[in-house]
Structures are given as C-alpha cells and as structure tokens.
Computed example of a mutant assay.
Amino acid sequence: MSTDAAPNGKDGPQIEVTEDAAEQALSLLDSEGLDSSVAGLRLFVQQGGCAGLSYGMRFDDEPESDDTIFTHYGLRVFVDPASMNYIEGSVVDYETGLQGAGFHVENPNVVSECGCGESFRT
C-alpha cells in the first residue's frame, strides 16, 4: 500500500509515517474496534517535560474540522493547527530496542531535547 503525496489532497506541510509505524498503529486501531477508514492516530504537541514541550498520541474516532489529515500506508493521522506549527516535516516511526518498543517522532524543528528524549524545544 502506498502513502499519499499531500495532506487533504493538497500541497503543504507534511508529516510522514513509516510503514512499520503505520502497521503497528493500524493493528492497535483494529484491536480497539475502531474503523480505520474514519478513525486515526492524533499526533499533537502539549506543554510539559523538562524541555518545555512533549508529543502526545491517541486514537480519535474522527478528525476535527480544522485538522490536517495525512494518510500513510492506510493509517490516517490527524494534526491540529497549533501542533502543526511545531511538528511539520516530522517522521513518525516505530522502534524496538533494549529499552522497549514504541512510537518515536523525528522532528527537524527541534533545537534541543531533554536527556531522555521525551520532551523538546523548537
């Protein structure tokens, strides 16, 4: 399955999702009983952490009216306008390692991160 070229069918800022991350998220969506053709992964930025901002992710039944919607490998990703200012150009990946497995955001806008990598500053 391929990834869409642009959000909402138009050119603009991008959020990428790797195939591994999309597969993991779709599996979790399915286990929650959510319809992946409507529901999706919400990626957002919130105040918190030792560097000032942190990422948040959750599943939403449907997008909000002002969300930018990205579709990658069948996964819909919803991003609100305020969060887009901090995370445009980011790549969401799923990593496994000695410290466990989980989703990771590679954000080109970050100027510094805390030591554990859970929070950031732009």
Rank of each mutant, 00 (worst) to 15 (best):
M1D: 02
P7C: 01
N8D: 13
G9E: 05
D11L: 12
G12Q: 08
E16V: 02
E16I: 03
V17N: 00
T18P: 04
T18A: 06
A21Y: 08
E23Q: 15
Q24P: 00
A25N: 02
A25I: 07
A25G: 04
S27D: 06
D30M: 00
D30H: 15
E32K: 15
S37H: 13
S37A: 15
V38E: 15
V38R: 09
A39T: 10
L41Y: 11
R42A: 12
F44M: 11
F44W: 11
A51C: 14
G56A: 14
G56H: 12
R58N: 10
R58C: 08
D60K: 04
D61Q: 15
D61P: 05
D61C: 05
E64W: 12
D66P: 00
D67F: 12
D67M: 05
T68H: 05
I69P: 00
I69W: 02
T71F: 01
H72S: 14
H72A: 12
Y73E: 07
L75W: 07
R76Y: 01
V77T: 14
P81E: 06
P81R: 13
A82E: 12
Y86L: 01
Y86W: 08
I87W: 00
E88Q: 13
E88K: 11
E88W: 15
V91K: 08
D93E: 09
Y94C: 05
Y94N: 02
G97E: 09
G97M: 10
A101L: 05
F103S: 03
V105Q: 03
E106S: 09
E106L: 05
N107T: 04
N107C: 09
N109L: 15
V111T: 12
V111E: 09
E113N: 11
E113L: 08
G115I: 03
C116A: 09
S119R: 14
S119D: 07
S119N: 09
F120D: 00
R121Q: 11
R121I: 00
R121S: 11
